[in-house]
Simulated scan of single mutants.
Amino acid sequence: MKAYWIAHVDVTDPQQYSAYTQLAPAAFAQYGGRLLARGGRSEALEGRPTPQRSVVIEFASYEQALACYRSAEYQAACAQRQGAARAEVIIVEGL
């Protein structure tokens, strides 16, 4: 069963955040992640205000999505994001 990584991100330091965006895609690819949405238009209809960026990544399974997040490769990218953005990341299993 597929799983989806959903992230809402507000960038506070674009220059530093670019280091994250240069590293993270390689980790996604290594674990079979396929970007379905990244940035683009969005509108919050309920809940908190619209984040600057919304990201949806599809994985073959919940386990693959978790393995990607917990991997050394992604954590190295994540370290670059610290202090450069506020992020909420969830993984949800598909139907």
Results as ranks from 00 to 15, higher is better:
residue 47 G to Y: 05
residue 49 P to L: 04
residue 86 R to P: 02
residue 66 L to N: 12
residue 64 Q to I: 00
residue 49 P to V: 00
residue 22 Q to S: 12
residue 85 A to W: 09
residue 56 V to D: 01
residue 20 Y to V: 05
residue 28 F to A: 11
residue 44 A to P: 09
residue 14 P to V: 00
residue 67 A to D: 11
residue 41 R to T: 14
residue 73 E to L: 14
residue 74 Y to C: 05
residue 60 A to E: 12
residue 30 Q to F: 14
residue 79 A to W: 10
residue 36 L to W: 05
residue 91 I to N: 03
residue 89 V to E: 04
residue 14 P to W: 03
residue 28 F to M: 09
residue 54 S to I: 15
residue 65 A to E: 05
residue 52 Q to H: 04
residue 22 Q to I: 05
residue 72 A to L: 13
residue 40 G to F: 06
residue 27 A to G: 07
residue 62 Y to D: 08
residue 84 A to K: 08
residue 10 D to Q: 12
residue 50 T to E: 03
residue 2 K to G: 03
residue 78 C to R: 10
residue 83 G to W: 07
residue 58 E to H: 05
residue 81 R to E: 10
residue 40 G to W: 09
residue 1 M to I: 12
residue 33 G to V: 00
residue 18 S to L: 07
residue 73 E to V: 09
residue 53 R to A: 01
residue 14 P to I: 00
residue 93 E to Q: 15
residue 41 R to M: 12
residue 86 R to G: 10
residue 83 G to A: 06
residue 91 I to Q: 01
residue 25 P to S: 14
residue 23 L to Q: 08
residue 55 V to T: 02
residue 27 A to N: 08
residue 34 R to N: 05
residue 93 E to I: 05
residue 58 E to Q: 06
residue 46 E to C: 06
residue 19 A to Q: 14
residue 62 Y to W: 08
residue 19 A to I: 03
residue 58 E to S: 02
residue 17 Y to I: 04
residue 56 V to Q: 02
residue 91 I to P: 01
residue 60 A to P: 12
residue 77 A to S: 08
residue 52 Q to S: 06
residue 41 R to L: 11
residue 9 V to Y: 00
residue 72 A to K: 13
residue 79 A to T: 06
residue 50 T to F: 01
residue 30 Q to V: 13
residue 35 L to E: 11
residue 95 L to A: 13
residue 34 R to Y: 03
residue 77 A to K: 07
residue 35 L to Q: 13
residue 78 C to T: 01
residue 14 P to S: 04
residue 70 R to Y: 14
residue 22 Q to R: 15
residue 6 I to E: 01
residue 69 Y to I: 05
residue 14 P to G: 00
residue 43 E to T: 11
residue 21 T to V: 08
residue 17 Y to C: 05
residue 80 Q to I: 02
residue 92 V to F: 09
residue 4 Y to C: 04
residue 36 L to D: 11
residue 35 L to I: 14
residue 1 M to C: 10
residue 68 C to E: 01
residue 73 E to P: 10
residue 83 G to M: 10
residue 62 Y to L: 14
residue 11 V to T: 02
residue 57 I to K: 01
residue 22 Q to E: 14
residue 84 A to M: 13
residue 49 P to Q: 06
residue 7 A to G: 12
residue 53 R to P: 01
residue 10 D to R: 10
residue 49 P to R: 06
residue 27 A to I: 07
residue 59 F to S: 01
residue 54 S to A: 15
residue 78 C to P: 00
residue 61 S to H: 00
residue 81 R to N: 09
residue 1 M to L: 13
residue 23 L to M: 11
residue 35 L to T: 15
residue 24 A to F: 06
residue 72 A to G: 09
residue 39 G to H: 06
residue 29 A to Q: 11
residue 70 R to T: 08
residue 47 G to P: 07
residue 15 Q to D: 13
residue 16 Q to Y: 01
residue 92 V to D: 05
residue 83 G to T: 08
residue 49 P to W: 07
residue 19 A to R: 15
residue 91 I to H: 05
residue 7 A to S: 13
residue 67 A to S: 15
residue 51 P to G: 04
residue 81 R to L: 14
residue 92 V to A: 11
